[in-house]
Design a protein around this nucleic acid. Structure first.
Lengths: 146, 146
DNA sequence: CTTGACCTTCTAGTTACTCGAAGGTCCATC
DNA sequence: GATGGACCTTCGAGTAACTAGAAGGTCAAG
């Protein structure tokens, strides 16, 4: 018989903190594991696989909501696979948007970083000037994409 | 005398929600404005400039902590400008790291998106497989040492 | 038997907002 | 002068995805 992993062992095995594992259990991403006589959580191979899957999907930038959807799909193997594909393609678009945003940002920061002669005073700092509004145009809320 | 803007007018002028403006006041990013007889907030041109600056810096991806630092520097114009430059350069590095991460991510999602023949069932879905751990190697998350 | 590493639950904090409820103010119109 | 609707006020709570801490229980080694 396999002994079952403690939460710390599962944490090490998947590169996840123990607190995060408890959190996942609390919000229903991971099923509650068996308990030992001393009330310790005891995980099996299926838990390891599931948690590894979760971490992998999270590392790809998907929100937990999407993780939940993917787990639901994976648990219902008769559904057509197009839904999974759609999720991935949507996420791909999102990532491409983020990259484009950040590249614009980088260009601007790059420009900014060359404005400072390091010996000046803040009063003459071209960076602060550059950040100050010449044309305060109404922008939609910056820095968040739903 | 200039009349002073209501919070809604300032919101419109800077593309910020009124709630966010109140929030900035609460956490000390914006100074409390004058009040009208009816207890409405009344903002002047300096407020407009300061809020526009805040939004601009935020849009460049800096956290509010950095906004605070930049405001403090801008308010003390005799300090050398190098600190400002350092903040920008640090942020530039950060953005470049994020871009690199996202590009790796995009490559993987791209690969993933071509694994699905749309007519299959989830049971055969190569995406789910691809996301599942064949080798549950301990992935280091930021900040753990053995 | 004691020490220290590990585990338990519960609560609260993080970031940067965002929303809702309950009520007050302002101004134009009837 | 009354009324309606747009705007404002405060306060409190909610969001994502964890993270950290307190107070205490369990376990294996020495």
């Amino acid at each position: 018989m396999k002994p079952g992993l403690s939460i710390g062992a599962l944490a090490k095995a998947t590169g996840t903190k123990a607190e995060t594992i408890r959190y996942y259990e609390q919000i229903g991403i991971l099923p509650p594991p068996a308990r030992t006589a001393g009330n310790y959580r005891s995980y099996d191979g299926e838990h390891v696989r599931r948690l590894a899957f979760v971490r992998r999907v999270r590392a790809l930038g998907f929100p937990l909501e999407t993780v939940r959807a993917l787990l639901a799909l994976a648990d219902q193997p008769d559904r057509p696979c197009g839904e999974v594909d759609a999720l991935v393609v949507e996420q791909l678009r999102e990532v491409e948007r983020k990259i484009a945003d950040l590249q614009r940002l980088r260009a601007e920061l790059d420009r900014l970083a060359h404005q400072c002669r390091n010996d000046g005073r803040v009063a003459d700092c071209r960076i602060i000037e550059a950040l100050s509004p010449q044309d305060p145009a109404p922008n939609p809320t910056p820095g968040d994409r739903p």
